[in-house]
């Protein structure tokens, strides 16, 4: 199962253009140290478990705006939780001080920041990506 999943991710990452329209993908700067991510890795990153790259640099997370449908469906597909649940979870982590809330940005701002910061990771509609970005994984 795991092998199939890895294979499929590799396959998909080699053919970004094949991504279906309206599909949300995890994206980063072309120079991001990470290659492809499976779903568990994506969860660990976005839920605060994985905070650093192996180089020691901090992972900078980017969120879509709270009202966007992309954000809603991203988390729904990723951990099967509503936005309220996600907010509640993150609020709990805030007290320990070891988690910073991701910056909320629009699609354009997302792309702009990803292009600028190779340590940033975000998610966006597959239609919006350009050549300066790379797809790290899919959530479906």
């Amino acid at each position: 199962m795991k092998t199939i999943l890895v294979l499929s991710i590799l396959f998909l990452s080699m053919m970004p253009s094949l991504a279906a329209s309206g599909e949300i993908v995890v994206v980063a700067n072309k120079n991001n140290p990470l290659a492809a991510l499976n779903k568990q890795q994506i969860i660990d990153i976005f839920m605060g478990r994985t905070k650093f790259y192996s180089s020691g640099d901090r992972i900078v997370l980017l969120d879509q705006e709270i009202t966007s449908s992309a954000r809603k469906s991203f988390y729904q597909n990723l951990v099967n939780k509503t936005l309220n649940e996600i907010n509640s979870y993150r609020a709990r982590l805030l007290f320990s001080g070891r988690f910073a809330l991701p910056k909320e940005v629009s699609d354009d701002e997302m792309i702009k920041r990803l292009e600028k910061d190779p340590n940033a990771i975000g998610y966006i509609d597959a239609d919006k990506i350009n050549d300066s970005l790379k797809v790290l994984g899919y959530v479906d």
């Binding site: 839920m47 605060g48 478990r49 979870y89 709990r92 982590l93 007290f95 320990s96 001080g97 070891r98």
Partner: peptide, 17 residues
Amino acid sequence: QTAAIAAYLDDLTLAKE
């Protein structure tokens, strides 16, 4: 639930709480 989150995140503060 909180304990699970603390364990998931290895969050000492939350765990202590």
